[in-house]
Structure formats: C-alpha cells, structure tokens
Design a binder for these strands. Structure first.
Lengths: 234, 234
DNA sequence: GTGTGGATTTCGCGT
DNA sequence: ACGCGAAGTCCACAC
C-alpha cells in the first residue's frame, strides 16, 4: 500500500462528473490498484475514489498544468467501465509504501440473522401457543423470514428487520399477497402478517396497521437473555 | 491526520460485534477523532471504523495482553452511542501526523437531479404532445418527480431513477394511489404512471407492467445531446 | 432535531 | 455472472 500526503485537485468522470479543488489530502493506493482520496474529516467514505479493478498511470504534466504548478498527474482508469480519476499533484508532503499482506477479514455477529434465529427459537414472543413452521420459507419472489402458526392454527408470516421502514412493510405485503393464493395456508383464514423490528418508524407502523399487519417491537437483549437463561438449564 | 501502519487486532462492539484477527493494517485517525482501519484491498470501505463524534484513549496493555505481545491499546468510544472500538497494537511500522486543513469539498454534477431536469426539458421523450405540469409535485407522502399531461390532457406521474428497482415501482404506486384521489387530476381518467430509469431491472419491470405502469429507459447521453443541439441554436 | 430518499453506494448470498 | 436484499450503511434536504 502506498500512502501519499499531497496538495492536489481531483477530477472524476464516470457515472457522474465531480471535481475537488486544490487542497491537502491523503491519497491511498491499494495493492489491487484502487485509489482513495481522503480528507481530514467526514466519515469513512473518501471524498473520491476508484474501485478495483483499475490501473494507475503517472503522467508528466502538460504545458498549461506545469505553468499552474502541477508536478505530476495520476490517471486512474477503471478496468471495465468508462471511469477515469485524474489527480493533479501540486506538492507532495510525504510518499511512503508498506507491505501489508492479505487480510484475514472481518468476523461478524449479531445482525438480522441473529434476530431471526432468536425469534424463531422463542416464537411464543409473538403470542401464546405460536409454533414455528420454518425460517426462510421460500416463495416465487423471495424467502419469507419466518412462517408460523398461531394458537388457532392460522398461518402467520413474519418479516424481520433491524429498523422497520416502509420498504419492509411493502415487502411483507407482497409476500402476504402471494401466500394468500395458496389454499393449503389459508384453510383457517387469510395469512396474517407480523412486522417485527427493533425499531419501527412511525410511517411504517401507520402503513402496516392500515394494511392489517401487526407490528411487534423486538427487544434483542431480552431475547438473548431468554436464550442464556435457557442454556443455563442444561 | 495521524497515519499508522501497524500489526494489530481489532474488536468492535456496538450495533454488532465484530473481530479482526492479527494482521498488518493502516490506521487513520482524522481531525474529528474518527478512526479508520484499512486493509490493502477491498473497496473504499474500511474493515472497521468509528464514526464521529468519538474520542480515542491510548491505554497500557494489561498483563495478559503484554504476555501476548501487545504494545499498546487504542480505545475508541462513540460520543453518543454505546459503541467501542478496541485496537490492540502488536508492532508499529510507521506513525506520522500531517496537517491537512479543512477540505473545500466535492462539486457534483450529473445524478438523478440532472436526469430529472433533462427529462422535464424534453418531456416529449415520453410521447408526442406531452406537456410539463411541474417538477417535484408535492403530495402528502413526498414529491412526485414529474407531473405532466399527455396529448389527451390525461395526467401522468413520472418517477425517475438512475437504476430502476422494485422500490421505485412501489414508491410510484403509492404516489399514484394518492394522486388518483384528487378529482382535479382524474377528470380525463386515472393518473397514469411512468417509471423512467437508465436501467430497469427485470423484476421491477415485471411489477410495473403488472400494475399498468409504463416503463421508459432513459438515454442520458441522448438527452444531453438534445440539450446541446438546442443550445447551439441560440 | 427527526424523517425520508439517494448513492460513483458496497457487501454478501443465492441462482 | 447476475439479481436482489442488507448495511454499524453515509449524506443531504425537507419539515
């Protein structure tokens, strides 16, 4: 990895056209050729970048550029798309390279999958007498997170989100529409919908209620607590 | 901005739990205190990070850590949430700091707003005799990108996307439902929907057609070309 | 401040 | 490879 601190201006042309005026920034050139332009603030997102696969060529500045004080020009081209990143270097404060090697990568734990597993395990959180049919119940337009039965053997489809947005309600609505065409699932009446999330946004709740979908707020800590209490019994 | 190349392991606890095994990585500490952990590949996204506002404390390793070869521990805490990032440094290869100053920021051009402006200007792209009513037509659930009339004075609502996904079709469907409750707009029949995008995904197209929404693929270059040809006339 | 929609989104999974 | 859904999404703009 090459790390350069330099006064530079940047021009990107591809999906959009973007320009960065002259300022001091950090330039990162990764082993795969990708280039990142970072400022000293903002978030983890660079001001500008070129995604791999791509290649970088160092050009000599032309006459006009030289007069303006440009010392070097980096031309970064994407391997497949018509994307170019042109970095004009006016002053290089630091230029170093380091051998990093391949990264073993991130180990994650505790996202939507975890919520789904916990809720499936403690399906009675949704109501007395609920029983799990299956997780990831397949339909033509995608898998339903959880399919279960209520105390009266009525079918219930559950959509789980970390944050409950309108999109999630729409998604569940499409599933319900499809599931309700299956006679085997509707023997005890139409399939009910449950929208379960750690946080349900007001507009999403309104839409859900309007469509007869029940909203359930999930307490991740409480679910995990149940799990722990259970495991301590064995 | 502080830039450190070091052998390190990283543990994040917050919205999720994540761990990075020991490896050589680049650590970036920005002026606002945010910390980025980058590997020598991937995209612009760091392997792990802490978003501002946050504060970093350098701790001495405890006994167990010292035995394992840990030289220093960075504890990064988020200012508002219960998020912590713990970076254990085993060997520091480089540690430098640079004054970058405030960045003037990115100047953008050519995204959805541009597409909308171009299509509004050349509304007959949608059909002979079409006339623009207005852009960003306000409704209770948000603005409709373009509202126009067809040759028979029927109202047409247009949703514009760079990439046409199912979400966009749902969005337009909600708008149409609302617009069709307005008698003033439905004098010449129900409001028609047009889903316009540079690329329309098959599933989105299927859903749109199923709902009687017309799909139009936008040619950004062609629209811009019309614009140029027009401006040359004046 | 909060909520909503877009993104040069990126990432990962399943077909 | 492609399509689709999630993300510790981030970010700007409207209310």
């Amino acid at each position: 990895m090459r790390v350069v601190i330099a006064e530079c201006s940047v021009d990107y042309e591809g999906a959009l056209v973007a320009h960065l005026p002259l300022a001091t920034r950090l330039l990162m050139v990764k082993a795969d050729g990708s280039v990142l332009v970072h400022s000293d603030g903002g978030s983890y997102k660079p001001l500008n970048w070129m995604a791999p696969p791509c290649s970088m060529t160092e050009l000599d500045p032309d006459e006009a550029e030289r007069e303006e004080g440009v010392q070097a020009v980096w031309l970064v081209r994407h391997g497949k798309r018509e994307d170019t990143l042109r970095i004009r270097l006016y002053a290089v404060h630091s230029d170093t390279a380091h051998e990093l090697g391949v990264d073993p990568g991130l180990v994650k734990d505790g996202v939507e999958a975890q919520l789904q597993a916990l809720l499936a395990e403690h399906i009675t959180t949704l109501g007395e007498g609920y029983t799990l049919l299956r997780r990831e119940y397949p339909t033509a337009i995608g898998p339903v997170d959880i399919l279960c039965k209520d105390a009266d053997s009525g079918t219930v489809a559950v959509e789980i989100k970390r944050r409950g947005d309108i999109d999630g309600v729409e998604q569940l609505t499409r599933y319900l529409e499809l599931l309700n065409r299956d006679p085997a699932l509707t023997v005890r009446g139409p399939v009910q919908g449950v929208f379960a999330a750690q946080l349900i946004r007001p507009q999403a709740r309104t839409l859900a209620v309007d469509r007869g979908i029940r909203c359930v707020t999930l307490d991740y800590e409480a679910l995990r607590g149940m799990d722990d209490a259970e495991s301590r019994l064995f």
